[in-house]
Simulated scan of single mutants.
Amino acid sequence: MSSRLHNALSAALIALACLLVPFGALAAWVSYGLADTGRYVTAMAPLAADPAVRDAVADTVGDGIVRETDAGAPMRPFVHDAVRSFTGTDAFRTAWASGNRAVHDAVLRAVRDGRGGEVRVDLAPVAAEVKQQLAADNVPLADRIPVEHTEVAVLPAGELDRLRRGLSVVEVAAFWLPVTAALLAVAGIAVAACRRRAVTATALGTALGGAFLALAVFLGRRLTLADLPETVHRPAAEAVYDALTATLRTVSWLLVAVGLAVALTTWLITRHRQPPVAAPRP
């Protein structure tokens, strides 16, 4: 096989490998990050101290307390301030983690079990914990907050079916896409007529894939927030999106940094090994 054919085959393999890099990273993030309850709760934990999330919780819980206790509009500012103060306590951070774990467990269990119907979760234990802490802090009307075993729908049946099908595909892709990308890159470098150039091309392609992934995360943020209804607390939604995609953003910039570093190293080695140019004779 001629060197031209070697280079053409190498370029095709390397291009395909670099194309799979961002998709493999995205699939791995969904499968090993979002679909793992422990990692999901860990990612959401810092939001308990986020001012936007605390304001959203104070608004939602405060309005619920006023509505359930018939306290009336004049009491709303006092209840809101009391709940806002509660969001700065350790008890709130515990309740926040418990609520996120309960919802994620319910959704994941429904997906894994393959049962139909909408996903519902009972948040009464979390509400009871919040009520107990509010009463201990002498929050007005805290003892009148009802704590009932009311199941809350968190995912419709139609969405559950789509999520189940999508997750099964992502779980397979999360393993095979990175493996395939690595094998294609190795094969592309192996068949290249000039392997140093092939390594440089692979590194630059990896960096380009990381940049594409970072751009996708940025555009996904804008599109996700643009589709939210007006009733959603936008700063809190921004904080949630940023927390969930923090690992993905880190991976994207890591791909860019590693790719550029390898390309620069290969270029420096090539420059160092080039023989000095002889000066022309007079």
Rank of each mutant, 00 (worst) to 15 (best):
V147E: 07
L134Y: 02
T202M: 11
A128Y: 08
I145S: 05
T180F: 03
A135N: 06
V172P: 14
A193R: 15
V172F: 08
R197H: 12
D137L: 00
P140V: 15
V152S: 12
A198I: 09
A187F: 02
E129G: 14
E171Y: 04
R197I: 01
A193P: 10
P140N: 06
R197N: 01
R197W: 13
Q132D: 14
A182S: 03
E159S: 11
A124C: 10
L177N: 05
V179M: 08
H149A: 14
D137T: 04
E171H: 11
A157W: 12
V154L: 10
L134A: 08
L163F: 11
T150N: 11
D137F: 00
T180I: 08
K131V: 00
E118F: 10
R164I: 00
R196Q: 09
L177T: 03
Q132K: 14
V170M: 13
S168N: 13
A157Q: 12
R197Y: 12
V147S: 09
A187Y: 00
V199G: 04
R120M: 01
A198K: 15
A193G: 07
E151Y: 00
V126C: 07
P178N: 12
L134G: 06
P146S: 07
A157P: 08
V170A: 09
A142R: 05
V170Y: 14
A181R: 02
V199R: 14
G188I: 04
A201M: 12
A153V: 10
V170L: 08
D122C: 05
A135H: 09
A136R: 09
S168D: 14
A127M: 09
T200A: 09
G166V: 03
V186I: 15
V147W: 03
A201V: 11
L123M: 13
A182Y: 02
K131F: 00
R165S: 10
L123T: 09
S168W: 15
L123G: 09
T150C: 01
